[in-house]
């Protein structure tokens, strides 16, 4: 089904795999925040739930991916609901601050509870995703395609349409009788579930989970999704993929590659506020319809 990537070395394959997972991070952020307009500034907390849970279990029992993925899905979805219940009543910046606080608490806990979490060092020795690099890549790719496809279909469905209605006006939706809390919590659960699964897959992929591969993602997920374009899952996922890919390719420049994120963010918000891939998508559609007229 997939075109076999003609990678000369495993390094590129590695970068590709990570970029694909980051695409899921961005897409899952989009599913809650891009659709409902509830900006989640603590997406890393949901990634951490999946990743660290596998880490904890692995330190006592070598859990395999086929078991840990459904487990991560259930636990992170429940966690999303628990966090969503009190916070989704908050409006605008207060919701953003509350989610930021959740992620900050998680970050502090994973550093200070070092007996359990390994502190800054993180947890090593998690079972690898599969035995080989190539099979791991296909595993990750399959998961990402499925996850993005499911979120895309949900987003296009009537469910997604209601989520979008909440973005512009919750009161207008309530006046029509739409149970806004149910929809917001469900969106939170779906977003959190996919973030959690992706987190657990990353843990298996590296055989490691630690603060360095989790907590920068609160901000980076937002940047990836916004640069790619929100409200359509695929543009956000593409944003996640390409930003990660490029930034990994530039990793030899050391810390300078972090600048890439911010520069791209500034440029894209200035010149393409609807997102690079939303813009390209619209362009292609107009060209397509013009060609159709002829």
């Amino acid at each position: 089904m997939y075109i076999f990537p003609v990678f000369k070395d495993y390094y590129l394959l590695n970068v590709f795999s990570i970029a694909v997972i980051y695409a899921v991070y961005a897409a899952s952020w989009d599913f809650l925040s891009g659709f409902t307009g509830k900006e989640n500034f603590g997406h890393a907390a949901f990634i951490a739930i999946g990743g660290y849970m596998i880490g904890f279990i692995s330190s006592v029992y070598p859990i395999k991916p086929f078991l840990s993925i459904p487990l991560a899905a259930v636990v992170s979805a429940i966690f999303g609901i628990l966090i969503g219940l009190p916070t989704l009543k908050l409006k605008g910046p207060y919701f953003a601050l509350a989610t930021l606080a959740v992620a900050t608490i998680f970050e502090k806990l994973s550093i200070s509870l070092s007996d359990l979490t390994g502190g800054e060092e993180g947890i090593y020795g998690i079972e690898f995703l599969t035995q080989g690099q190539i099979s791991s890549f296909y595993f990750v790719l399959t998961f990402a395609v499925l996850a993005i496809l499911i979120m895309y279909i949900l987003g296009k469905s009537n469910f997604g349409l209601i989520l979008k209605s909440l973005r512009s006006d919750e009161d207008a939706a309530r006046a029509l009788g739409i149970k806004i809390n149910f929809y917001k919590i469900s969106a939170f659960a779906v977003s959190s579930m996919f973030a959690g699964i992706a987190g657990s897959i990353v843990a298996h992929f590296y055989g490691y989970i630690g603060p360095d591969i989790v907590y920068p993602l609160s901000l980076n997920s937002i940047i990836m999704a916004v640069v790619g374009g929100i409200g359509g899952i695929v543009p956000a996922a593409l944003g996640g993929f390409f930003l990660t890919f490029i930034s990994e390719m530039l990793s030899e420049f050391g810390d300078w590659n972090q600048l890439l994120y911010t520069v791209v963010l500034i440029l894209s918000t200035l010149f393409l506020p609807s997102g690079i891939f939303n813009y390209l998508g619209a362009k292609i559609r107009t060209i397509g319809s013009k060609a159709g007229e002829k």
Partner: peptide
């Protein structure tokens, strides 16, 4: 509503 509340972006 007195001030119209259309769902934007659709």
């Amino acid at each position: 509503f007195q001030i119209v509340k259309p769902f934007k972006g659709m």
